[in-house]
């Protein structure tokens, strides 16, 4: 019985769906509020993302005549499940590093690829030219950022000499966080750039470019599926920085002052992401790929070389 109840609790309430959802919505409010303040506006009240989600849930869900209804409606759920699992696995391993299992890092990396995949499936299934265009751009963007992102994460694996989350956390516990090592710093910078692309925020919001392709893959979505997509994006805004903190920045600790420190780490990453989003123009897709495969990958490889020689 316990074998069923604990995972279900982890998955649905803490640290899975409910917890990640609430913190993610708050994070997306911070994002919108800071954006508004940067543009000298007042910005929305704190419950705004929640109101958006509830409103979309209450609205009519239109399945247009063209698309394949199954894929069209299942795609958002796929993304939501992916991001919930990422959050659950990363948090459970942080709370209890001993429960690490072989290949957990690889599992999380695969799960992190699910939300973009869901966007691609949804956009392509919607049979709208703009949706298809958005899906194609998302696909190119995924190709662009996965390479440097994987190199950056595996720099840590090389440095630690193990592919277990638990070992990475223990290593940082005893040898200092990854950011103390030159290779770790380079990998961390690369990972931040790639997570900006993973979150499809400016300058990498090319797939949904509101002003040119009308929110791209989401163009035909309405009502509940759109709400799930929005929620997935909000949850990614929480799950991805937590993943970065775990791998590069010593993980999450909850005793005494460490709790404050953990929160500060997350807020710092969030602020970096929001500030980058607000101070950059959108790239074209070819510029983005050139940037991600050029300088970013070069820095990632440099970090990898440093890790191999032991720095």
């Amino acid at each position: 019985m316990e074998k069923v109840i604990y995972p279900l609790f982890y998955f649905l309430i803490f640290p899975g769906f409910l917890f990640t959802g609430i913190v993610g919505l708050l994070a997306s409010w911070v994002d919108r509020k800071v954006t508004a303040r940067v543009q000298w506006r007042v910005g929305p009240p704190w419950y705004q993302p929640l109101a958006d989600i509830l409103k979309l849930l209450g609205k009519e869900t239109i399945v247009p005549a063209g698309p394949r209804a199954t894929f069209f409606l299942l795609a958002p759920v796929l993304g939501l499940v992916g991001v919930t699992l990422v959050s659950t696995v990363v948090w459970v391993l942080n709370l209890n590093p001993g429960s690490s299992f072989v290949g957990d890092l690889v599992v999380v990396l695969y799960l992190l690829a699910l939300p973009p995949l869901a966007v691609i499936i949804g956009g392509a299934a919607s049979k709208n030219p703009l949706g298809a265009l958005g899906a194609a751009r998302e696909m190119k963007l995924v190709l662009g950022y996965e390479l440097p992102f994987l190199i950056a994460v595996f720099t840590v694996v090389v440095k630690v000499g193990s592919i277990l989350f638990g070992d990475i956390l223990n290593f940082q516990e005893f040898n200092g966080i990854m950011l103390r090592h030159p290779s770790g710093i380079l990998a961390f910078v690369v990972a931040i750039v790639c997570s900006q692309a993973k979150l499809t925020l400016i300058p990498f919001d090319i797939p949904e470019a509101e002003q040119e392709i009308m929110s791209g893959p989401y163009v035909e979505y309405s009502g509940a599926p759109l709400a799930i997509f929005k929620l997935t994006r909000a949850m990614m805004l929480f799950a991805l920085p937590v993943f970065l903190i775990t791998v590069f920045w010593g993980g999450l600790h909850f005793s005494g002052w460490n709790l404050l420190w953990t929160i500060l780490k997350y807020v710092a990453l969030l602020v970096v992401i929001v500030v980058v989003r607000n101070t950059n123009p959108r790239l074209r897709i070819d510029q983005a790929i050139r940037f991600l495969w050029g300088p970013v990958t070069a820095v990632a490889i440099l970090g990898m070389i440093l890790a191999v020689v032991g720095l």
Partner: peptide
Amino acid sequence: TPRFDVERFGILLIGSVRHAD
């Protein structure tokens, strides 16, 4: 624009009519 800023009330201008209220 900053002077009126309807996002205070949660009003957003969106690009697809499927998202509209």
